[in-house]
């Protein structure tokens, strides 16, 4: 039947259509940038692609004069360590409390209201308090990510555990499983893919919290560099940094999907990613 909903593009068509929005954005940028540069060759707001290229070489391949480090890699390393620590701790907390709250009624009645309220606290508003309590160094930056991400993971996992069919739990018990065995053999394998999904959805907020924390007090990091460069509008560095952060986020998302597919193939039946 010839209907719009039934039309499928060819293989090349799929690629072309997917690339189209990117191409349009680049073309629009190029047009505006060229117009501004024709007016003022030193314009900093929309640098030419060649200027950005030079800036990338400068930050990614040449050591900085003052510190002797190559700033892009130093920044990336510092930011990724903070992000990994923050997400790692949040995941551990999310998993433990998610299972507790979802499975053990005593834990749920004790903790669930508290976690529910906690997850409503806007983490950014806590930032000044974190800095005063935990100092300006790494701890407060990691803590912000944990506070921002953990409550969501806890609640999400608790809901998933509660959704497990009661029959499974009953059956496991008739086969003689203890609570511990049920956690290890029934609950855990089924919610780990959900944990990875939750983690994927938390990547965006985690980057947001990381960059906000780095903007306030820092000596290195991707967010630090962007806010420092903003002081003299060095868009030739800021734009590639934004692209690089986007790329890192996309790669981590892809890695998580691959892990999930390899380890929990059953959870990916009948869905896109």
């Amino acid at each position: 039947m010839r209907r719009l909903i039934n039309l499928r593009p060819s293989r090349q068509g799929t690629f072309f259509l997917g690339a189209l929005p990117f191409a349009i954005v680049l073309v629009i940028y190029f047009v505006f940038s060229s117009l501004r540069l024709a007016e003022n060759p030193a314009d900093k707001l929309m640098p030419a692609f060649s200027t950005m290229g030079e800036a990338i070489v400068r930050v990614a391949a040449e050591p900085e004069q003052r510190s002797g480090t190559i700033v892009l890699w130093a920044d990336t390393g510092a930011s990724l360590v903070r992000l990994a620590l923050g997400l790692g701790i949040a995941t551990a907390i999310g998993l433990v409390f998610g299972i507790l709250n979802g499975l053990i009624v005593y834990a749920r009645v004790t903790l669930a209201p508290f976690v529910g309220v906690l997850s409503m606290v806007p983490p950014m508003a806590l930032l000044p308090i974190l800095f005063i309590m935990l100092g300006l160094e790494e701890t407060s930056k990691v803590a912000l990510i944990v506070i921002g991400v953990a409550p969501y993971l806890m609640r999400d996992l608790a809901l998933r555990v509660e959704e497990l069919p009661g029959e499974q739990l009953v059956k496991a018990q008739t086969l003689g499983a203890s609570t511990w065995v049920i956690v290890a053999r029934v609950v855990l394998p089924q919610i780990l893919p959900r944990l990875i999904d939750g983690l994927r959805l938390s990547l965006g907020p985690a980057w947001l919290f990381l960059i906000a924390a780095e903007a306030i007090a820092s000596t290195e990091g991707l967010g630090y560099r962007i806010f420092l460069m903003r002081r003299y509008m060095a868009m030739d560095v800021i734009l590639p940094y934004v692209a690089w952060i986007t790329f890192l986020a996309a790669i981590s998302d892809w890695v998580l999907v691959q892990i999930s597919r390899r380890a929990f193939g059953w959870a990916h039946l009948g869905r896109g990613a």
């Binding site: 800095f131 005063i132 300006l136 306030i216 007090a217 000596t219 630090y224 806010f227």
Partner: peptide
Amino acid sequence: TVNTSDADFIAA
């Protein structure tokens, strides 16, 4: 040097 936002001088 540690870059610090001017809004946070006093808290920092």
